[in-house]
């Protein structure tokens, strides 16, 4: 892709201090995100996949500066926003929004929906009072809700409707990027499909970029253009969705793909069963973090972290065995 990246991460790290409950002494660090480099282009959906503790949510939050990065660089539309003060960050905040897994937790239970949607417009001093209301009605319409819905409170809505509200709020300021953190994981499948369709049509209409965090590979395949596979804070593989799902190279990618139960009965597939559990992110293994469960582990994997190398245009992988 020749166009400049909308977001560029360079060796991004986010470490949290780990404290013992005893006098809150520091006992080391949890490396939630440990050196991630990637680009996100305008109008594309980048899927970020991994199991619990892999750092996928932290990277999403750090990317839009909800968390302070420990190391590395974040560029947004070419500008370095890694260390901007919150005042200097304000114009960028408008362009970077977030949709959360549980929309109910992110809505004020005592605030009418139209007030919730109007708030960001007021804060960023956009439009006058009348024009703001009109904008709220447009937003409701855009996500498939009625004008009357604006007069209600969050508890009057079902999970799917609340997620529509969460999306409307993210759209209020016309962002160019939305970080979606497991936006459909809490929803029933029939409703999940409605929300996925909505996200797709909004992207086509507005040219949005999505940073789409999910553990559900089916959802990712349906929605994403490119996919990053993470494991314990580190990048394992990055490729176009087409390549990754057909010929993912990393042993972890392959195991992950083979572990997903397919809705096709009677087909006994050969699963690559991974032995053991996910190691704790506060005490990750040396070398390649996946070496303790990898079916193709070599001695070098225990000692040295594999480099993040490009094996084909746009296809990166961190593995000694490939």
């Amino acid at each position: 892709m020749a166009a400049p990246a909308l977001v560029k991460l360079e060796n991004l790290k986010k470490h949290y201090p780990r404290r013992s409950s005893w006098f809150r002494r520091s006992t080391g660090e949890v490396k939630a995100v440990d050196g991630i480099s990637l680009e996100l282009y305008a109008g594309e959906t980048l899927g970020v996949v991994g199991e619990s503790g892999c750092g996928k949510s932290t990277i999403g939050r750090t990317l839009i500066r909800l968390e302070k990065p420990t190391e590395g660089r974040i560029r947004f539309e070419g500008a370095d926003i890694t260390h901007l003060s919150s005042r200097k960050l304000k114009p960028y905040r408008r362009k970077m929004q977030m949709v959360f897994q549980d929309p109910f937790a992110s809505l004020n239970p005592r605030q009418r929906i139209d007030d919730t949607l109007e708030e960001p417009l007021t804060i960023h001093q956009m439009l006058d009072k009348r024009a703001r209301r009109e904008r709220v009605w447009e937003l409701l319409d855009e996500v498939g809700l009625d004008r009357e819905h604006g007069e209600r409170l969050p508890h009057e809505f079902s999970g799917g409707q609340r997620q529509r509200i969460g999306i409307a709020r993210a759209l209020a300021l016309n962002p160019s990027l939305i970080v979606c953190d497991e936006p459909v994981s809490a929803l029933d499948v029939s409703v999940q499909a409605q929300i996925l369709k909505l996200l797709k049509s909004l992207q086509q209409k507005r040219g949005l970029s999505y940073f789409f965090i999910s553990h559900d590979l089916g959802v990712v395949r349906h929605l994403c253009d490119r996919v990053l596979i993470m494991y314990l804070g580190q990048a394992m593989e990055l490729a176009s969705a087409f390549t990754l799902f057909r010929e993912g190279q990393h042993p972890y990618t392959q195991a992950l793909l083979s572990a997903i139960p397919r809705p096709v009965p009677g087909k006994k597939r050969e699963r690559i069963l991974l032995k053991g559990d996910l190691p704790s992110p506060s005490d990750p293994p040396s070398g390649c973090p996946f070496h303790t469960r990898c079916p193709e582990v070599r001695s070098v994997c225990r000692e040295r972290r594999p480099e993040w190398k490009e094996i084909a245009p746009g296809h990166r992988i961190a593995c000694h065995a490939r």
Binding site: V189, A193, G218, V219
Partner: peptide, 24 residues
């Protein structure tokens, strides 16, 4: 039928997703 068509397919990116309108 609707339930089966609402599940995204990992092995086929072009699998048409058919959601069920409305809520239970």
């Amino acid at each position: 039928q609707g339930l089966l068509q609402s599940v995204p397919n990992v092995d086929d990116s072009l699998y048409p997703l058919n959601s069920i309108p409305g809520y239970m």
